[in-house]
Write a protein that binds this DNA or RNA. Structure first.
Length: 264
DNA sequence: ATCGGTACCTGCACGC
DNA sequence: TGCGTGCAGGTACCGA
């Protein structure tokens, strides 16, 4: 589900939680805590107030009173909800002084962590693509030796790009997903940066892509999926040249591209 | 230090 | 109807 635009939309939908106090927390699936102890974590959370809520790539970071951070990752199928009742895949229930926050995740790839210091795994992420200068993006890109699709998915290169927006940006830039980064000419690298900025900006404005069941914390769907030009359009005509969209595996991930418009 | 492959989990669509 | 297969927005870990 959630890449940068979806997580950004979710974060905006939970901004009303800033200033709320956590009265209690209940964790129903220990796996989501990644080794953390449910009981101890609940005790440590109780009584703390939610401060700033920020997105770092695909991570959601809430600062807490008394120092420390609650770190959330939605994985593939994670959802936050401020409304509705706990269901089959509800793994965490935060009871607040006003309202509630539920964490649902059918595939359990998501994570909830409590850190007393700024989390190292967040500090290790690459820059935000929307805050990065085009020249820095191009320079960094050409230092790597891999296929461009794999690099876009590498969160240490830029943070927040996932399978949908990698494919969509590559299409807009006319670059084949298997193109070699080291041999990509400067003008094409700069064009890719612009394509990435454009597609992410448009997707945020659309509230993200709702592929199967993605919704924000208020249950609202995104509608950028109707603007996808290649992602999951295998066999359909290219919006630009009518050639059939193809699908190949790059770094074990489906990659959708136009064989005529996108060059290596 | 980097890279590709695999594992982790559940649900769904599809063909037989 | 049921069963097997392949696929799905994610990251972490392994060995090369």
């Amino acid at each position: 589900m959630p890449e940068l635009p979806e997580v950004e939309t979710v974060v905006r939908s939970i901004l009303p939680l800033v200033g709320r106090r956590i009265l209690g927390a209940e964790f129903l699936a220990a796996r989501i805590l990644r080794g953390g102890d449910p009981e101890r974590m609940a005790v440590r959370l109780a009584g703390r107030r939610i401060g700033a809520i920020r997105r770092y790539g695909k991570f959601i970071l809430m600062s807490l009173s008394g120092g420390g951070y609650l770190l959330l990752h939605l994985g593939m199928t994670g959802r936050l909800s401020r409304t509705g009742a706990p269901g089959k895949h509800t793994h965490a229930i935060f009871t607040l002084d006003r309202g509630v926050l539920l964490f649902d995740d059918s595939r359990q790839f998501g994570a909830i962590e409590l850190h007393e210091d700024f989390p190292a795994r967040v500090a290790r992420l690459g820059p935000e693509p929307l805050e990065m200068a085009a020249e820095d993006f191009a320079r960094s890109l050409r230092r790597h030796r891999t296929r461009i699709k794999a690099l876009l998915l590498n969160q240490a290169f830029v943070r927040g790009v996932g399978n949908i927006y990698a494919d969509e940006a590559l299409f807009r830039a006319g670059i084949h997903p298997m193109a070699s980064t080291a041999r990509l000419r400067l003008d094409r690298a700069l064009r890719l940066h612009q394509a990435l900025v454009d597609v992410l900006t448009e997707a945020i404005a659309a509230g993200g892509s709702s592929i199967s069941d993605y919704v924000d914390a208020d249950g609202r769907q995104g509608f950028f999926q109707v603007s996808h030009r290649v992602y999951q359009r295998t066999g359909e005509p290219c919006v630009s040249c009518r050639a059939a969209i193809r699908r190949v595996l790059v770094a074990q991930r489906s990659s959708h591209f136009c064989p005529r418009c996108q060059k290596r």
